[in-house]
Design a protein around this nucleic acid. Structure first.
Lengths: 155, 155
DNA sequence: ACAGAATCCGGCTTATAGATCAACTCAAGT
DNA sequence: ACTTGAGTTGATCTATAAGCCGGATTCTGT
């Protein structure tokens, strides 16, 4: 589940998961996926159900006194939205408007769907292109110094 | 799997893997290969399936909030494209247009296919020649300072 | 509570990109 | 010179994305 595809967001703010990834998700018996914020960049993360389960469990189990940890819990857990396959094995995700805003993705626009192995990212395609060529994003990159407790989680 | 061959990209942006390498891949029971960006130079990397598996697994497992790590994940995982042998044992790879652009390889042009042992590289043949003679590439080389966590991965 | 409006969700159709299949030419070796 | 295999080009076909439409459901305002 690698590589990227340019997809279009329809007039209703929906995103269709590209078939090549869908097929693999089906093959792995994944029944749902979860969309949430990327904690650093103006982008969205998409996790297959099983991956989400382990990441969210790990995040929840962390003690909540460290401000960075709490922030991560809010942004990742608090913005999660689950979708599942339709009876024909297709998947059309309705991106909640807060997530669309966060990732600067408008309706009827192009977006980049990026396969990162066990998870995916969705970018406004202009931002993705800028990233690829080393250009500036419209939103600043956050500098994050991670506490030890997070070093083992790969978001 | 060493040495280099000059190959040509056809009008549709396709690349045929030279027979001498193909045969060795077959002999090693490799069933697919993965093309992706070289993280430093305007060139493409081609990994046999098994090699790709270990590299991509290592990359994914790295903690994902470090900007350098994420950049590597994006460029390597996010640009990967898999191909497999056809029934006759031949292999014709369609190079995605973004990869062609990145490596400055145009349709109907020559390219250099370089065997590096357990992986291959594909260069615009002018750039390859320039590299060989110490001349300047048309695109600057990126300076990359690798964090310790990446020192063990041989891309 | 009801009506109207807006939003959400599924089905259908069509243009297209990409994968497969096939054929031709060239080069090399016997 | 003939045969075989490789490289290259061309053609076809299938799967998919995306646009469109209509029905259903929820929300809102009166």
């Amino acid at each position: 589940m690698f590589g990227f595809t340019t997809i279009s967001i329809d007039a209703k703010g929906r995103l269709a998961v590209p078939a090549k990834y869908r097929n693999q998700l089906n093959a792995q018996n994944e029944e749902s996926i979860v969309v949430t914020r990327d904690p650093q960049y103006p982008a969205l993360k998409i996790y297959p159900g099983s991956i989400w389960k382990s990441i969210s469990t790990e995040l929840q189990s962390l003690q909540g006194l460290d401000p960075i940890v709490r922030n991560l819990q809010w942004t990742i857990l608090g913005n999660a939205s689950e979708s599942s396959f339709d009876p024909k094995g297709r998947m059309l995700i309705l991106l909640p408007s807060e997530l669309r805003e966060y990732a600067e993705i408008q309706k009827e626009q192009k977006a980049s769907f990026i396969g990162m192995g066990n998870k995916f990212e969705v970018w406004n395609d202009k931002n993705w292109e800028a990233r690829q060529t080393g250009g500036a994003l419209s939103t600043e990159i956050l500098e994050v110094v991670l506490p030890e407790s997070l070093k083992t989680i790969s978001f």
